[in-house]
Amino acid sequence: MNIFRLLGDLSHLLAIIILLLKIWRTRSCAGVSGKSQILFALVFTTRYLDLFTNFISMYNSAMKLIYLVCSYATVFLMYFKFKATYDSNHDTFRMEFLVVPVGGLAFLVNHDFTPLEILWTFSIYLEAVAILPQLFMISKTGEAETITSHYLFALGSYRALYIVNWVFRFYTEGFFDLIAIVAGCVQTILYCDFFYLYITKVLKGKQLTLPA
């Protein structure tokens, strides 16, 4: 464990908590893409299947459980409890356009052709593009609530910090996982224009609006 990975995990946890609290306290999921949340729940499910078979540490197991519980709780709130506030008219990205190619790629490019490893690879590739429905929704509505932009900033920062962690681990342990690194770079690049808008607008107290 290194500080970059720890900060990355905390940033990820912060993002998940921000979103869950936003939906719970405002009793509304306006502006949030339910499809992205379903994809994130799928990412955690396919990545943490080894939760009970491969014990790494208390921290690792606890975080996996928290991510799983929070992601399913978010999906539940969006599609059941606060379904009336779910903006399905703007959340129209076709998830199958992501899941099918990612599933195929996971079969072709992986470290080990075993079910668990292919599912892990699938989760890594899927996580890289899982935010697209959310970014697409914001581009359609042309704006995002400030709390949603904080959520996205924390979520984007988590994988950016992981990239620093991978550089650190390469130089200190000689460890590198090319699949995670390439997918992590793609994932972080997808946030770039959002990062620009966040830093130039939200941090100056303005509403996050996309140029029409």
Binding site: N60, H111, D112, G174, D177, L178
Partner: peptide, 10 residues
């Protein structure tokens, strides 16, 4: 080693 068999990252 690239991509260890056990993935120790979240």
């Amino acid at each position: 080693p690239s991509g260890g068999e056990t993935h120790d990252e979240l």
